[in-house]
């Protein structure tokens, strides 16, 4: 049985003529125990998709099921077995850390003790602040508390909507490590993120853009399927260099990435590119051949 199955989901907001098409027919499958990433820029439809799967929103077309239960007909069963962590911190800011956790445990008819083993690794980090009001926690702490609250009823599927947005890079690494641990406890995880570098952490990723799925695959396969060559260029006048690269016929796409500007070519046309660039940057042009990363693949796909 699949953890999540979405079949041709469509969602429009607003009236017919001026409707915003949030989802334009999304289909994917998540295997039990999988860490599945939904990668997409802001406004690509990630949150709408999550709200449909967590029974908060009705899709206009298409069907979806979570743990084998239909999101429309069997919403009651789904609510018993999913954990949802919305993108925006939404716990009671005027209740303490312990009170929030206790509240969410009790409304699922369970207790903190019963499922403590599941949240222990996360909760021990915020336990020193157990009497502090949730609204007064730092960003990383809030996120850990929210994850604890989403886990306290031992859900079989965990939905995390942009859990790492606005979190520092150390906390982000920690967070992904926590998700890996949860995965070993048999929880299927669906996580969305706008950060492409996080895709490599997932078992499988779906790339979303403007309500469409561009690709679904494992990160390794996505990188392997990249055809073309990719070079990094740098020179003193980086802005000028980027505009130049974008203007060349040989270059399919060019975008800044770290200290280089990455240029993607369908086939290796480095000599001809170099000869053209050398005219403007005779002294300081540097180039390096790069192995494509998952970000490069996404940039190529989203073009």
């Amino acid at each position: 049985m699949l953890a999540v199955k979405a079949d041709n989901l469509v969602k429009n907001y607003g009236k017919k003529a001026s409707a915003v098409k949030a989802l334009k027919g999304i289909s994917f499958e998540v295997q039990p125990g999988e860490l599945f990433g939904i990668i997409g820029p802001d406004g690509s439809g990630k949150t709408s998709l999550f709200r449909i799967l967590t029974t908060l929103l009705l899709a206009d077309e298409g069907t979806a099921s979570v743990d084998g239960f239909d999101v429309v007909k069997d919403f009651k069963q789904i609510r018993e077995r999913v954990g949802y962590m919305p993108g925006k911190f939404s716990l009671y800011p005027d209740l303490s850390v312990a009170e929030n956790l206790e509240f969410f445990a009790t409304i699922f008819d369970t207790s903190i003790e019963e499922n403590y083993d599941l949240i222990r690794d996360i909760y021990v980090q915020i336990e020193p602040f157990r009497d502090r009001k949730a609204g007064k926690l730092s960003g990383g702490m809030k996120q850990k508390l929210a994850l604890s609250c989403a886990l306290i009823h031992r859900p079989s599927v965990l939905f995390l909507d942009e859990p790492t947005t606005g979190v520092d890079s150390v906390s982000r690494k920690e967070f992904w490590a926590m998700l890996k641990t949860l995965q070993t406890k048999g929880i299927s995880i669906l996580v969305s993120t706008p950060y492409m570098d996080e895709a490599a952490q997932c078992d499988k990723v779906a790339l979303l853009q403007d309500g469409n799925v561009l690709t679904i695959n494992t990160p390794a396969e996505i990188v392997k399927n990249f055809d073309g060559k990719i070079y990094g260029f740098r020179a003193a006048n980086m802005l000028h260099l980027l505009n130049e690269l974008k203007g060349l016929n040989e270059v399919q796409s060019a975008y800044p990435s770290g200290i280089y500007h990455n240029a993607v070519m369908a086939e290796d046309r480095l000599p001809s590119v170099l000869s053209k660039l050398k005219m403007d940057h005779p002294l300081d042009l540097e180039q390096v051949e790069l192995t494509p990363t998952i970000e490069d693949c996404f940039m190529a796909l989203m073009k």
């Binding site: 908060l56 609510r79 925006k88 939404s90 009671y92 008819d109």
Partner: peptide
């Protein structure tokens, strides 16, 4: 947003 959190519970 807490109402959403409540809404996904039973």
């Amino acid at each position: 947003g807490t109402i959403e959190q409540i809404n996904v519970t039973p």
